[in-house]
Each structure stands twice: as structure tokens, then as C-alpha cells.
Design a protein around this nucleic acid. Structure first.
Lengths: 340, 340
DNA sequence: GTGAAAGCGCTAACAA
DNA sequence: TTGTTAGCGCTTTCAC
């Protein structure tokens, strides 16, 4: 019960401290009966090794950091992050790591995390959410040479490991669908300005239009902050432009947009069709299924941690690049052209 | 840049290791000029102390754990937890603690966290989300005598510190409002069964009815799992009972309930009035303000951590009891009786 | 296969 | 005010 040490266990089992350490760490060179005896003592005493001592001696803490930079205010606004965090946490559990969470809100916070987000700060590695352009955090962390993986493409990707989905291709694919359905004025509600994910999805939107021989009308592109309210506002603006379809950078934006459409006395998809992005289990207030790009949020978080563990075990170089698949899920909100 | 130690700094500054340690830890007994000299070396070298070594020597890790038990699946379904986590994380930042996150999903997870959720596992203390009855986690953690605070009243509260809002009084107050407005058949959509918060809000619901001389009709009480969809389902069931008002255990349940009302071709509040609980910045699909009990979710998380720090610094006993205030926010969804 | 012993980098009591 | 020193509990060579 009390604060037992390896030494105590060794005495109780009639062996040396080293032997107990070997048993605890599952080293091969321990005879079967000694191992059994030691394990029995460990079991009955409820002994657990002191992690600080272990970390100090072995230079491995079995602790990973998750950093959400300042510019990712969305942690609260968007259900994406809770879901992502679940995948991350489960991967940590399954691989025997502890997860430390760093929510960076202020400039002060950012400075304060540096002593902690490092090898000497307990962490074996760190997973950082991709941030807006101009956010120096990732570059600064890269300089510390702590094993790091970025969730989402970072702006400066040279020598930085990251995991992402192919946002450009996925968005192009979603747009192709709308174009095939015959919509003529397709708008785009983007995410928060200057973030790679927003840029990539917008790029896919534009590529699809161009490849279809359409002009890109800048007035039909409105950015947001990934919140429902900002999707609503963006749609109100777009409604004055006479659009017949909208591709949004996230489901929550589509939900806000659809709310604006309904408030204007119009119907989805007959008057305005929608395609979203994420396919999180949100409930559409319209009571109709949202056509959307499904990205594997939970597996994404899980895989991100596994990639980080790979970096920790096998070295930072070469930088890892993991791209996960998406899938267009067709439901009602995109409509059918003949009904219009 | 490299891995400097106290010893290195001491050599560079021409002092002893202890002196550097004192400077780093802001001990008073260092002369001004020595302190200045040492700080200068620390600054130019970018030295940060090794936290594992510090923890081992001082038996203090400056790390806190946040545990979400298995029965709190709501981490994903309800925006309450992300918001709570923000308050918790900010308090940790402000008090120089690192936050370790333990999402317990499986029985296996639960076993795996025990070596880690302890003093020897790096943690100075732990904040645990209150769980459903029958969940042994809190009791088991209490036995380890690690400083602990429970967020939300735990079932067995003897000698356990917790922070909560007065759910009974707040619910009674919300119900009094509906009763005053003249509603006759007021239903209740509860949270997940067997959790203290669900029981307390239900108790408030029942107390208000009894004090008003009304009978409690068990058929008008339906539990849920705190998700929008379950609120919707509960309301579908209640609609067959001819209710004219509903008090829900959370806003997200009210939103699901209102969706069911609208789908049935009825109006809020004219046909069915709603009062929710939380006052998180959700957007109601109805496009009308939700009358609700505002609880200070972010400050709640913040205060929970400060309470935990108090327990760490000043001892586990006596158990702390912090009750935070709520406020009934009256908007449109509760209606006015004369309009009915 | 097992034990002895030298650290890991820091804190903190004790001396000076 | 400053330095010396003895650990904190573990891992990890190196002998045997």
C-alpha cells in the first residue's frame, strides 16, 4: 500500500533490485521461477514503479503532448476536436502513453509551455494541431528537435512530419458531384482564414470549377471561423448573390448555412443544395441528411499518435507523411437536378 | 541549446549547483548580483530544469490529471466537456501546472490508469468527473489517497472533496418559473440514468411540482443519454402524452426536443414550452432563444482546479465543498401563459 | 541468469 | 549568503 520501491520488492522476493527491474521491464534474462516469485510479490504489494525515477534513469517518460495552438480557437466551437481527442487518447491508452494536454490561449501560455513541451519537460514527443499562417509555434517547436507530428498540413512542411487528408482532392470530388448535378452558381463557405485546411478546401473548390470550364467568382467565396453562427452569417451574405448550391468547409458551417436558407423561406436542396465536410454525427436542424465528405476523425487522431510513436522510436528523419482517405457520402442535401 | 544541467549553469556562472537551484526556484537567500549573473547565463543558454529530476527529488511534479470515467461517454456528445476542459486547462496554465488527460473508455483503460493516476505516476493531484452510480473509479481513487477533487457531486461523498452547482435548487427554480407561467402538464427529459446530476435535476423537478401541490406523473419523466438524438426520442414519446411544457436536463436535450416538436407540426412555445440547462452558446435550430439555467461551465472548471491545488497544498482533510451559483436566463422558449 | 554499482539531474538539509 | 553532500527510485552497464 505504502510507497514501496524496487528495493523493497527485491528484499521481499529475496533477489536484487536489478532483477526486479528486469521483471518489471520484461527483460528476457530472468529465470521463470524467479520471475514468478517477483511478480507474486509485486501483485500482493500492489507495487508500481515511480515514473519520475524511471524517466530520469531511462530518459523516456512514456508521455506525449497534444498542443492546440492559439489560432485553433475551434477547440470549443467545433465538435471535430473532441472527436479527434478521443482517437488520440485511445491510441495513447493502447500504447501505454499518458497524454498531456496543452491548450494555448494567450501569448503568455505559449511561452509557458516551452519548458514543458520538450524532452526535459517530461515529454517523449508532441502532436501539434496545424495552425494558421503566421503562427510561429510549430516552427519554434521544430527547432527544439523534440519528436513531433503535426495534425493537418503545416505551412512550412520541410522536414516536418504530418498527417492529413487530401483536402484538395476531397473537395474537388465533392464539387464535381455538385457540378454533375447541374448546379450553376455554386458558392463556398470556407473555414477560418489563413489556415491550411481552409486554403486546401478552397483550392479544391476552385480547381473543380476551372476543370469544368467555369469561372471562379470571388464573391461566391466567404470565409468563416468554423462556427455555426459564422456559417449562418456567410450564407446570409451568399443568399443575396443568388446561389443554387454551397460547398462548405465543415458540416457545422453547412448547418449554419441551412439555417439561414430556411429562415429566408427557401428549401434545401430545392432552392439551395449543400455539401459539407467531416461527417461527424451532428443532427441537421433541417431534418434531412447532409451530403458530406467523410473524414475519419477518430482514426485520424489514433493514427497521428501511432505516427508520433514511430518518429520517437525510429528517428525524426525522414519526415513522415501520412494521408488518410476520405469518402463522399451522398444524402439528401445535395438534391437531384431534375427536381429543381 | 544542448542538454544543459544545473551543474553546467553553475560552472558557467561561477557558482555552485545549489545556488543555481535557488535562483531557479526563487528562493530568497540569494544575493542580488549573483542572482542576476545566474539568470543571465540561464537566459543566454536557454536552460530549463529537467522535470523528471525535479519531481524525483522534490516529490512534486506540477502535473495534474483530469479523469473522465467510462460512464461519461458524453465527452463527445455534449459541448459541456470541451468548455469545461477549457476552464480546467486555463487554470492549469495560470498556476503553472501541466494537465494530463485520461479518457477512460474501456475496462482495460481503467486498470491501466491506476499506476499513472497516483503520486508515483507523476501526478500531484487529480480532478475526476463525477460518474454514474456503480462506477467504482472514484472510490478506488479515493483509497489511493492522492489529492482529488470530483467535478460534480459523487455518489459517496464522505471525505471526498467536490465542486458542484446546486442542481436541485436550480431545477426547482426553473420549474417554478414554468409553473408560474401556468403550464399544467410539465414533462422532464432527464440526463443519463443513475448519474448524480440527472438525479438532482429530476429531484428539483419533482420538488417544485410537489410544493405547488401537483402530482408527479412518472410517465412525464423520460431519461436520455444527454445527446441531441436522445432528447429528440424522449420528446417523441412525451408528445403522445399531451404535455404543454418540458424542463430538460441540458440545452442539447432541449434542442433535440424542440426538433421533435417542430417535426410534429407544433410550435415552441405556443404548443410546448421549453426550459433547458447549461446556457452554452449553442444555436437553437428553432431560431428562438432558449430559456435555460445558466451554469458557469468555464469558471467551474477553473475553480475545480484551484480547489484541487488547495487540497494539494493544504491537505485532503477536511473535504472541500464548493457550490457555484446558477441563474435562470429567460428567453423566448418558455413562452408567456396568456399567449396559449 | 543474477548482483553490484554507477549514475540520471535535481532538491534540501546541513555546514561554513 | 553560499557550498557540500546525501539522497530521490530507477535503469543499465559490467562482472561474475
Amino acid at each position: 500500500m505504502a510507497d514501496l520501491t524496487l528495493e523493497d520488492i527485491a528484499r521481499l522476493a529475496g533477489v536484487s533490485r536489478s532483477t526486479v527491474s528486469r521483471v518489471v521491464n520484461e527483460h528476457p534474462n530472468v529465470s521463470a521461477d524467479v520471475r514468478k516469485r517477483v511478480l507474486e510479490v509485486i501483485r500482493t504489494t500492489g507495487f508500481h514503479p515511480n515514473l519520475a525515477a524511471r524517466t530520469l534513469a531511462s530518459n523516456r517518460s512514456w508521455m506525449l503532448g497534444l498542443v492546440l495552438p492559439r489560432t485553433v480557437s475551434g477547440f470549443f466551437a467545433d465538435p471535430y476536436f473532441p472527436r479527434l481527442t478521443q482517437g488520440i487518447a485511445q491510441a495513447c491508452n493502447d500504447h501505454n502513453y499518458t497524454l498531456a494536454l496543452f491548450l494555448v490561449t494567450t501569448k503568455e501560455d505559449e511561452e509557458r509551455i516551452f519548458p514543458r513541451v520538450s524532452r526535459k519537460g517530461f515529454l517523449d514527443g508532441v502532436l501539434v494541431q496545424s495552425a494558421a499562417i503566421g503562427d510561429q509555434l510549430i516552427d519554434r517547436l521544430a527547432e527544439t528537435s523534440i519528436p513531433m507530428v503535426v495534425a493537418g498540413r503545416p505551412f512550412h512542411a520541410e522536414n516536418i512530419s504530418y498527417i492529413d487528408v487530401d483536402n484538395v482532392a476531397a473537395s474537388r470530388n465533392a464539387m464535381d458531384h455538385l457540378i454533375r448535378l447541374g448546379y450553376r452558381r455554386i458558392a463556398h463557405i470556407g473555414g477560418s482564414p489563413n489556415s491550411p485546411v481552409t486554403l486546401d478546401r478552397k483550392e479544391g473548390y476552385m480547381q473543380a470549377l476551372r476543370e469544368a470550364g467555369r469561372a471562379v467568382d470571388p464573391a461566391l467565396i466567404v470565409d468563416s471561423d468554423f462556427s455555426e453562427g459564422s456559417g449562418y452569417q456567410a450564407m446570409r451574405q451568399l443568399l443575396t448573390m443568388g446561389v443554387d448550391a454551397v460547398f462548405t468547409a465543415s458540416d457545422i458551417l453547412a448547418i449554419g448555412g441551412m439555417r439561414a436558407v430556411r429562415e429566408a423561406g427557401l428549401r434545401v436542396p430545392q432552392d439551395v443544395a449543400f455539401v459539407g465536410f467531416d461527417d461527424l454525427p451532428l443532427t441537421s436542424p433541417i431534418g434531412l441528411g447532409l451530403t458530406t465528405v467523410r473524414q475519419p476523425v477518430y482514426p485520424f487522431g489514433y493514427k497521428a499518435i501511432e505516427t508520433l510513436i514511430d518518429v520517437i522510436n525510429n528517428g525524426i528523419l525522414p519526415p513522415r507523411r501520412v494521408i488518410m482517405d476520405t469518402e463522399l457520402i451522398i444524402r439528401e442535401s445535395c438534391g437531384a437536378p431534375q427536381e429543381r
